[in-house]
Design a protein around this nucleic acid. Structure first.
Lengths: 177, 177, 177, 177
DNA sequence: CTCTAAGCGAGACGGTACGTCAGGTCTTGCT
DNA sequence: AGCAAGACCTGACGTACCGTCTCGCTTAGAG
């Protein structure tokens, strides 16, 4: 089911996916789908969680070079958003969020929060090391990253290495000690 | 028609709007709608252009204080995003963009480009004044602003004055001379 | 539509007829069917009225021989009930009546009343002619005819000429002067 | 189970009875039902046999007054058809017969044949006593009775005492010696 | 001052998908 | 071994909208 959902979204886009089509694709009855999920959006949610969304399952390395670390994560995410399949999934997530705020908030929370947490933790380390101003708002930084990635996905604009470099550079300068 | 579209989106959300409902609301026949617009998304596009979207029609002041100027714009946008009606419209725009990339790109272009242009111009002035590094990427800055506003609207999270201050501060530090 | 209904009932029986099947058979959308008829039973009703049901459209002759007249009508009805198609339709009518008493009553009224009226009128003539007792209950006679025909159709038992003769004979003796 | 079936039919009518509802009502699993009966109609059949159907279990008295005897039976049946529960059951029987001729024939056979046999036997006695013409068709008479009762049940029309009197009178006159 | 034609409302139509119901088959524990 | 519980595939239900298609009815503007 979840795989069928991902396949369908990649192929036709979230809006064009129908429960009937999914049922046929997964060789499952509609009733079975409705037994387990209340809506198309809920299936998408689970499909995204089960599968991977760009940035979601990236192993986040910690070296002693803050800039390199941030750029590494951002690059990994941008590589993910380079594959058309992932873009379609990310767009589906955005579409669902724009349509059903509650479910969307829950999903975004799940995807964004590990990233935010990691960024916040990494910046705390950098603060201790004296690389970053003590009063820098780590969460604001994390949010900028997520917002940038989200916006890029929404527009289908790839996050080029150059753009990643510029963005990380910009934000790090903003919080440099 | 366009007013009916805006009213309907504010009331029920873009996904729940139907052409038939619009027709009834505007006391117009379906045929007339199809005569003038090819799709629901197209009506939305026009409705957004005719009405106002947060940040879209804000008079952009230019003083000699870069930070104040940016914060002024951002605050104005955030005020717009405080009204639930505007949030609904912004979300509709995002939903359409996530669903129909081409139309979405065209619409976003229309809304984002004046902002981007203004930010770029304002930063050019600041560069001349020596307030900003000469090699700062103005477009990246502008993009950060738009991405942040877009992401906040998507999540229904209000842009508080505090957050605006932090964000502008962060980005300005990033490009300060 | 109505023809499709009659065809379908003859072919598979009323219970096996589906609105979807009818729609396909008549090359019409389901919605159109629901626009014009509230239920399968209502379509059946109209189909029966439009088409013919055994006994329904029989020209009822009046000669001066009461027995011959009654036998003529009954025979005509029995001929109708000899064709499998008509039996299927009659059975459908019975099934609907057994299921939806109100609609059934209305339909039966429409089919039975002309017969009853004719029988009553014919017997009135016979009373004047002195062939029939003055206190004979004409309606009871008519009802016997209809009940017999209905019961025969329900059981799929053909009304043989012999049976017709016996029944008419029996009932006429019962009211003979 | 069978009691649940009778209860359900009385309450909502045969068409509205579902096997799932029956299972719930009887606190039995669907599987168990399917283990013992092939179809809803089969359950109905057994339920009718186990319970009583109007006229089915009436002790048929034999006195030396033919008219009284016939009227007694017919009245007993009509009393049965006065209770709404019994009417619902009789209608269910008719509905099944109209839908599934084979099963219906078997069931009708079971209900009608004792009546027919009794009427035939009673009339044979009457023939011997010289009350009835020797060439009277006893089966035709019996059939008239059954058809009349069936038709009345189908239409939900109660068999009033008056109607019983008239019918018995009519038929007896028809075979009187 | 007609007459014509464009635009309109109303709404029927063939479709596709919706979410629900029940049918009949099946597997899994409990007793 | 028999059962309840209930998942499962299937097929039909009645509904909502889609986008297309006549219909008449205004209502100007051109002859």
């Amino acid at each position: 089911m979840l795989a069928a959902m991902r396949r369908a979204i990649s192929a036709e886009g979230y809006a064009a996916v129908t429960i009937e089509g999914l049922a046929a694709e997964a060789e499952v009855s509609k009733q079975t789908i409705y037994r387990w999920w209340p809506s198309k959006a809920a299936i998408l949610g689970e499909a995204l969680l089960e599968g991977s969304i760009p940035g979601g399952d990236i192993r986040l390395p910690v070296t002693d070079d803050l800039e390199a670390d941030l750029r590494a994560w951002f690059s990994a995410a941008s590589v993910g958003l380079g594959e058309p399949e992932s873009v379609a999934l990310a767009r589906a997530l955005i579409a669902v969020t724009a349509t059903d705020p509650d479910l969307g908030a829950a999903l975004n929370e799940r995807f964004a929060s590990p990233i935010v947490e990691w960024v916040v933790a990494r910046i705390a380390v950098a603060k201790d090391a004296g690389d970053v101003r003590a009063d820098a708002d780590a969460e604001a930084i994390a949010d900028q990253f997520v917002a940038t990635a989200s916006y890029a996905a929404l527009q289908g604009r790839p996050l080029t290495a150059e753009r990643v470099r510029v963005t990380v550079d910009l934000l790090l300068r903003g919080i440099a000690a």
